[in-house]
């Protein structure tokens, strides 16, 4: 099977970064690309949501919130048992892995579209629900009910962060406008989605390469954790997808969400609320190891496994 071209862009960024190229997208461009991706994913989800019974959607959203906590707790338990890191670092890393990466989700969506596999678009709503609970859990695990800086400013950081605002906002726009209403802006957000994702991945490759330097300093344990944890997260995702009766495409998306680690919302929130945790550890694990692993190996691997075991994968 040939490689999805968006992955080649990621490899290009990674290679350029490793070879110390001076290539960088301007910060404002990276910012714009991530805004476009978040809005596009939100709107796609919003459009699909009108066709889903409210009760089914609500119960699935609750289940997904539980999934975020389970994944985060699994990461925390693993790190505590290893006894290599202080509790605050373990809690902060657990928050990153319980929370999700929208960039990784976008790659899984592109992968399914590349293969021509259908999926439940309303899963975009899961992304929003998965972002928050694990972050709050990580804070409580590290500091009890006393985050640095207090709850009000933390709540603002967590609930008003750009990813939550744009995903939710996009979703509302999708619900209100509907597919017909969004036709006019479809060329930018939907037709150009893969082009935008390709550029975004080019920059992510460069960023991941930059983070690889510190990754070596943090040693083998963190590296091993950042490779094993996505597999555990994907398994948890698969179990929840099975219980929810998702299609194989939907199951891949939920596996990917379980496997992914946050590098936008969680770092910002943990830096504020748990300042004693070393931000280098969690960001390096999530950006330099887990993100590339999921994009290059994880997503196709999870899909292979789903195809082999899913009840109606052949249908």
């Amino acid at each position: 099977m040939s490689l999805d071209p968006v992955i080649l862009f990621f490899l290009l960024g990674l290679a350029a970064g490793l070879m110390k190229s001076d290539l960088r997208l301007p910060a404002a461009v990276y910012e714009l690309l991530s805004v476009l991706l978040l809005l596009a994913i939100g709107m796609k989800g919003g459009m699909a949501m009108s066709g889903v019974p409210v009760l089914q959607l609500t119960s699935q959203l609750v289940a997904v919130a539980v999934m975020g906590l389970v994944t985060g707790l699994a990461a925390f338990a693993l790190l505590l048992l290893a006894r290599r890191l202080p509790r605050s670092d373990a809690a902060s890393i657990a928050a990153h892995y319980g929370s999700v990466s929208v960039g990784t989700y976008a790659v899984a969506v592109a992968y399914l579209e590349y293969l021509g596999v259908s999926y439940e678009s309303y899963i975009a709503a899961f992304v929003v629900v998965l972002e928050v609970p694990a972050i709050l859990m990580g804070i409580v695990l590290a500091r009890g009910l006393k985050p640095a800086g207090g709850w009000p400013s933390l709540a603002n950081e967590v609930f008003m962060g750009k990813s939550v605002v744009l995903l939710l906002g996009g979703m509302l726009i999708g619900i209100i406008a509907g597919p017909a209403g969004l036709e006019g802006i479809a060329p930018l957000f939907f037709d150009a989605f893969k082009g935008i994702l390709a550029l975004f991945l080019l920059e992510m490759g460069l960023i991941a390469a930059l983070q690889l330097g510190p990754a070596r300093r943090h040693g083998v344990f963190l590296l091993a954790f950042a490779l094993v944890m996505p597999l555990i997260g994907a398994l948890i995702g698969a179990a929840f997808a099975l219980a929810m009766g998702l299609s194989p495409g939907g199951a891949l998306l939920l596996c990917t969400l379980g496997a992914s680690a946050s590098y936008i919302a969680a770092p910002a929130a943990m830096r504020m609320a748990v300042p004693e945790a070393n931000p280098g550890l969690s960001l390096t694990a999530s950006l330099a190891v887990t993100f590339p692993f999921n994009v290059l190996v994880g997503i196709p691997l999870y899909y292979r496994i789903i195809q082999a075991f899913w009840p109606d994968a052949g249908a």
Binding site: A27, Y30, P214
Partner: peptide, 10 residues
């Protein structure tokens, strides 16, 4: 505390 470079989030 190392190199602090803008460009990626905060």
């Amino acid at each position: 505390r190392g190199v602090r470079q803008p460009g990626f989030e905060k």
